[in-house]
């Protein structure tokens, strides 16, 4: 008996050793393309280093002064404000439309459910830039291309773009909920509303958080939608980063802007880790 358990133990250790090795190239890969760049980003934000000349390795707060300095009231803060407002409203709209849609989808017969799911993902095969441009065409036809409507138009186009990213994770989580759990709540005297609020909703929280992150972060940093829909009239956080990267030598200030989005990403990460440790609701 003792002998037998000893061999299985040895076998297990062997197994772990052999397949654990596969992680090493992954770590090297992530180190090169993820960890090092983050350090370059921080370095760029705090220096005046220019890759094209290789000169001026000097640590300074100049870039930060530029971002928060005299121009910040007309450039930086309005862009951040508009970006936050737009992405907040887009996320809210996606949640209000997406949650009931995902909920209704789980009530459909299994065979049709798979097809509906496919229909939901298929538009992602249509080029995203072209989808944005076609929204502009619609606003053009409806004579809605006016200064005061640009932000509204951007919100509509973004909601259409990111809605599937809200529906899919919520649907994935809702589908996994055992119907017996909900039935049990009925048996225990809950009515429909009550059992939804106390059973279904808490159980689908992981999907909601994933959905919110997958819509909020991309819509916060979008630049193509605002460029195309508003004919460059609405400048968002994404546009600020984009223009810095396009112009030569703008990497330093661009890095400061990027650090802001990194900050929002980290917040999103912490939220996600609380509800879904292995990220199973992300796709």
């Amino acid at each position: 008996m003792n002998n037998l358990s000893a061999t299985t133990k040895v076998g297990k250790i062997k197994k772990l050793k052999t397949t654990k090795v596969y992680v090493i190239p992954y770590l090297v890969w992530s180190f090169i393309f993820l960890i090092i760049p983050v350090f370059i980003l921080i370095f760029m934000a705090f220096s005046t280093y220019d890759f094209s000349t290789g000169a001026n390795v000097e640590f300074t707060l100049k870039n930060w002064k530029y971002v928060f300095g005299a121009e910040s009231r007309t450039v930086f803060w309005p862009s951040i404000g508009k970006s936050l407002l737009i992405s907040f409203l887009v996320t809210l709209l996606c949640l209000i439309i997406g949650y009931p849609t995902a909920f209704v989808m789980t009530k459909i017969k299994a065979r049709y459910r798979a097809l509906i799911m496919a229909l939901l993902i298929l538009p992602l095969w249509m080029n995203q830039v072209l989808r944005i441009v076609s929204w502009r065409t619609i606003f053009e036809i409806l004579k809605m291309n006016r200064n005061e409507l640009y932000i509204f138009n951007i919100i509509v186009a973004m909601t259409s773009m990111y809605l599937p990213f809200m529906i899919v994770p919520i649907f994935t989580v809702l589908e996994k909920i055992d119907p017996k759990v909900v039935e049990a709540s009925y048996d225990l005297g809950s009515n429909k509303v009550n059992s939804f609020l106390r059973v279904t909703l808490p159980l689908s929280l992981g999907g909601i958080v994933s959905g919110i992150i997958m819509t909020f972060l991309p819509s916060l940093t979008q630049f193509e939608v605002s460029d195309a829909i508003s004919y460059n009239n609405v400048v968002l956080l994404g546009n600020l980063i984009y223009t810095r990267f396009k112009g030569t030598g703008g990497f330093n200030v661009g890095s400061v802007f990027s650090l802001f989005t990194v900050l929002f990403t980290i917040i999103g990460f912490i939220l996600l880790l609380r509800v879904d440790k292995e990220g199973e609701t992300l796709i």
């Binding site: 760049p37 370059i40 630049f223 990497f251 989005t261 796709i283």
Partner: peptide, 26 residues
Amino acid sequence: LMVLNNMPVIMPDIVTGFLLLLIFVL
């Protein structure tokens, strides 16, 4: 390890793009 893996999924494209650009410029 999954945090490391999920980072590029959660990170907005513009940040991923900018980070990769920095390493490629290097």
